[in-house]
Design a protein around this nucleic acid. Structure first.
Length: 268
DNA sequence: CTGTAATGC
DNA sequence: GCATTACAG
């Protein structure tokens, strides 16, 4: 073969490659549009996604998030915890990585180094133990918030374990969680990652015809109080954060469920 | 479970 | 930077 022929073949291959790659990207986008738009709750984790106040929603395989560039962390992380997700498999802790899907640039883990605060998971690693891939995916810096170790390993951990208990008991729950982000918070690191003064968790169990919700709001400090002392209405968290939870629900149902601060139906 | 830190290559 | 080990609530 002459050099010229080889060059031609290479050129053609590159063109085919670029075309194929773009075609592939379009297919991906199309899938996602269908996924977010019309598909209902059977398989999707998009169905219960809250509104974003930042305009930057990122989807991963195991969870979705809305990233706040000003606070260098997610304003919410949302995921479904199915009963089938619960696993006792042990995985080695990987290193935290910058979430490349966050286009404004997610924070580096060095911001947390020697800050005195934990890299506190929002979507807990313990909820994604069913595969190594799902587990490791929680170690993105878009999925963490600075937390006091006493809080993280204390009452927050207790709440996360209670969520796993409910996921098992009610055959799955949908979880939305994050820190309450406001102006003027203490920050850590060069990138100024905000340290929330409160953390929230909102749950919905919609596995039968009678959906139920529960929401928790916790001060950023450990506590010996029982978990139910931290139950609040979803409405109050919406007011605090500006996030609209469950906008896809029928308004009548949404209004009724979100106004309630009762934990009837959730066994502690 | 939730994590940090020290050490060695 | 990565791997291993030790430690703490």
């Amino acid at each position: 073969m002459s050099k010229r022929t080889i060059y031609s073949v290479v050129a053609i291959l590159i063109v085919i490659g670029i075309y194929g790659y773009e075609h592939f990207l379009k297919e991906e986008e199309k899938d996602e549009a269908v996924f977010e738009g019309t598909q209902v709750k059977t398989e999707t984790n998009a169905y219960f996604l809250p509104s974003s106040t930042t305009g930057q929603v990122v989807h991963h395989d195991g969870y979705s998030l809305s990233y706040s560039e000003t606070h260098e962390q997610a304003e919410w992380v949302a995921y479904e915890l199915k009963k089938s997700h619960l696993s006792s498999t042990n995985h080695k802790r990987p290193y935290f990585e910058i979430d490349e899907a966050v286009k404004t640039g997610a924070a580096h883990w060095r911001n947390y180094k020697n800050s005195g605060y934990d890299r506190g998971h929002l979507c807990p690693a313990g909820d994604r133990r069913y595969t190594k891939q799902a587990h490791d995916e929680t170690f993105l810096t878009s999925n963490i918030s600075p937390q006091e170790h006493q809080f993280n390993s204390g009452i927050w951990n207790t709440l996360e374990q209670k969520v796993r208990y409910w996921a098992s008991k009610y055959d799955g729950v949908f979880v939305i969680t994050g820190g309450v982000l406001k102006e003027g918070l203490e920050t850590i690191g060069e990138e100024q990652v905000s340290v929330p003064k409160q953390f929230y968790k909102v749950l919905i169990d919609a596995n039968n015809g009678n959906p139920k919700m529960i929401a928790f709001l916790m001060p950023h400090q450990d506590s010996k109080k029982p978990l139910y002392e931290f139950v609040v209405s979803v409405d109050s968290i919406e007011k605090l954060t500006g996030i609209d939870f469950f906008p896809q629900l029928d308004d009548t149902i949404e209004n009724k469920l979100e106004a309630s601060s009762s934990y009837k139906g959730w066994s502690f």
